[in-house]
Design a protein around this nucleic acid. Structure first.
Lengths: 240, 240
DNA sequence: AAAATACATATTGTCTACAGCAAACATTTG
DNA sequence: CAAATGTTTGCTGTAGACAATATGTATTTT
């Protein structure tokens, strides 16, 4: 029945995840069940199941009688993210180094190879998705069902934040991406060597790189105003 | 329509949670959708939505074409739990002390009052549920959507483990419960005072109490065999 | 003219009936 | 008698039709 062996329901699930991660579906927007079910060629009951599951994973917020809203990103969201991310990332990496199986390491290497490709040829969305998968695999290596839920939630918004603050005009981002990719290689080496402390430390460093990148967008360098004109004066004039 | 203002679907959701937390539904068992839907007076599609959501929260594991299985508890489960719990509990308590609102503190106090009652009059299941609620409220106080998923998952199994290793024959457990209740009072005081470090430290202490209790069941004190008879000799004789 | 209420419309929530898959049992054949 | 295959039964998965609720608009009343 399916060209793929994946069912249409599974396709729907994965496609919605992808669209949310890449911001193709913007945070906060409401989706129409009928439209979606028709788009994926399934009826509304299974679609609603999919939405419930994705709500459980943090992709959607469900409002009674109001439908499914793509998980919004507020100012508080970003703050909370910064507070928890390093702890969970470090813990995941540590456990990954302790528990990773050879098969998982192979998968991680393959993913990293794809990531290198994407850095050069791919677009921002593709890079973001592959990066998400890389860290997802590390999460799976950690093999801890109590840590995974928070990690999953973090990766969703880490990916979306990365997409939000992406700007193709900034050439220094390319250098930072190379650096990130180098750190990925180090992750693989440390995990393969079973170096838990090293992996945890690298996770923090990797996080710092990402954080600095985000912060450079959130509070960018001020432009130098001529003479002593008040910052924001133009905006006020334009708004009135 | 509803005697309660909660819909029957909500009742179903909450009742399944309760039954799983109290081990009324044992880990690993498979549930029949038709039976359940009839029991709660709803049809199968909304029931399936409920199951999907609860699967997302970690109460169930869904197997394709095989139905819903109450989340099983293996040896690995327990190990993983021990590894992650102190970190997440400490982090939650710290953030709770930093962010708790007066209204939330009031709710926590009310919950603690109920807990004290339950220690004397309630049964094991009631105590377990109220304890779960107490720590859930602390989680809500932390107000961090990235930390909450793991905390929720931990509380599910913490509650179930507590029920598993409960034995009404052990009088020293009553003393430990009093101690736990005292620590709850300290939680309230520290959170109200905004003492983040204190709350985090108390979380670790509270965890240690719980851990010691669990461990006393997992590896109980050996009985003293008369003379030099080999441990397990009886079992071997019986088995052959 | 403005506000409130009633109605119409669109969307979510639910139910019943059917289709598909899997496991267990019976039957047949080597 | 054993093993393999066919059949049956009971469950999960899905579809389409119906009910309920919320929102927006139009009309009426003050």
């Amino acid at each position: 029945m399916d060209a793929d062996n994946r069912s249409r329901k599974t396709i729907c699930l994965e496609d919605l995840r992808r669209k949310i991660l890449t911001l193709e579906l913007e945070p906060g927007v409401y989706l129409d069940e009928t439209e979606l079910s028709e788009a994926y060629g399934i009826s509304r009951p299974p679609l609603r199941e999919v939405l419930r599951q994705l709500a459980g994973e943090g992709y959607f917020v469900l409002h009674e009688n109001r439908g499914a809203q793509v998980a919004p990103m507020t100012h508080k969201t970003l703050r909370n993210f910064f507070v928890v991310a390093p702890m969970i990332y470090a813990a995941s990496s540590r456990l990954a180094a302790e528990h990773a199986t050879p098969a998982q390491v192979a998968r991680l290497k393959e993913c990293q190879w794809t990531f290198r490709q994407a850095i050069r040829t791919g677009d921002a969305a593709e890079r973001a998705l592959i990066n998400e998968r890389f860290h997802s695999i590390i999460g799976e290596m950690a093999d801890n069902e109590y840590l995974m839920p928070s990690l999953r939630r973090l990766l969703i918004d880490h990916t979306r934040i990365g997409m939000t603050f992406y700007n193709p005009r900034k050439p220094e981002l390319a250098r930072q991406r190379e650096l990130a990719a180098d750190q990925h290689d180090q992750f693989i080496a440390l995990i393969e060597a079973g170096d838990a402390d090293g992996a945890a430390a690298l996770a923090v460093a990797h996080w710092e790189l990402s954080r600095a990148q985000i912060e450079s967008f959130v509070s960018p360098q001020a432009i130098s105003y001529p003479l002593g004109r008040e910052p924001g004066a133009e905006e006020r004039r334009g708004a009135s």
